[in-house]
Simulated scan of single mutants.
Amino acid sequence: MKEQKVPHLTSLELWRAWREHGDINAKKDLIENYLPLVEYVTNRMSIGLPKNVSKEDLGSHGVMGLIDAIEKFDYLRGLQFETYASWRIRGAIIDGLRQGDWVPRSVREKAKKIEEAYQVLEQRHMRSITDAEICEYLDISEKDFANIVQDISFSTIFSLEEPLREEESETRMSLLIDQSAKKPESTVDDVFLKASLEKGIERLTEKERTVISLFYYEDLSLSEIAEVMSLSPSRISQLHSKAIQRLRGVLEQHRAELFHS
């Protein structure tokens, strides 16, 4: 008699076998099925990082994020696993980078000065601040400012994907791009934070808004954005970095008003 082949389980059957019956083989199959998602996120996040950051290390962190997502995902809610897992994978990679402390202290200090300059000047003038105004405030040349922005571009690549609070996985960008996933226990603070981010985005230059939109909303890499906008990847990196510093300044102002009101 010819041996009958056992059909592959569907995705739903795998989830049911794993979540309801604790089938370890089903869990392994789920991990294997979604490994390409880890590769996709890793490739996207590795763009623009220093050469000393290994893509293999990023991938290892990403796999841990995928496993965490599979262990915590509730397939009965009808949500898309890929979206949920992507945030978990990004978060695991960011945590791994933080633990490795790959951003030099001098770069962090430069980023903080730029962030504070945007915060002070935009609060003072209530409008988008030019590079020339930032340079005057910091008492540096525009060439030096451009070099500083280039230096800090690596440290800002994940800024909007950092958790709102250390003990939570919800990020700043999730408040803007995932309206349907808003939790019932969301606080008034989250509402004001979202408003602050939207206000900050309105103050970005047209090119900065375009970069933020293409990177965080359209899921394009910096090199793809460079091609779309007919600019060099380094220029796109600078625009992204300046946009993030503006937004971080707005968020710091929001935090100051919230806790001192």
Rank of each mutant, 00 (worst) to 15 (best):
K2V: 08
H8M: 05
L9N: 06
R19D: 11
R19S: 15
E20R: 12
H21M: 05
D23F: 09
D23K: 05
N25D: 11
K28C: 04
D29W: 05
Y34K: 01
L37K: 03
L37H: 03
V41E: 08
M45Y: 10
G48K: 09
N52R: 14
D57K: 15
G59Q: 13
G59T: 13
S60L: 07
M64Y: 10
G65I: 08
D68S: 09
D74F: 00
R77D: 02
R77N: 02
G78Q: 01
L79F: 00
F81V: 02
F81R: 01
Y84F: 14
A85P: 08
W87R: 06
R88G: 03
P104F: 00
R108D: 06
E116D: 07
A117Q: 09
A117N: 10
D131G: 13
I134N: 05
C135W: 00
I140S: 01
S141V: 06
K143I: 14
K143G: 00
K143R: 12
F145E: 02
I148N: 01
D151H: 03
S159D: 15
S159K: 05
E166W: 07
E166S: 15
E167R: 08
E168Q: 15
M173K: 10
S174H: 13
D178N: 10
Q179A: 13
K183A: 10
E185D: 15
F192Y: 13
S196V: 06
K199P: 01
I201N: 05
E206K: 15
E206T: 15
K207M: 12
S213P: 00
S213K: 12
L222I: 12
S223D: 14
E227F: 00
E227A: 07
S230H: 11
P233N: 13
I236R: 04
L239S: 03
H240D: 09
K242S: 15
K242C: 13
I244Q: 12
L247R: 04
R248A: 11
G249W: 10
V250I: 14
L251T: 07
E252V: 01
H254Y: 10
E257H: 02
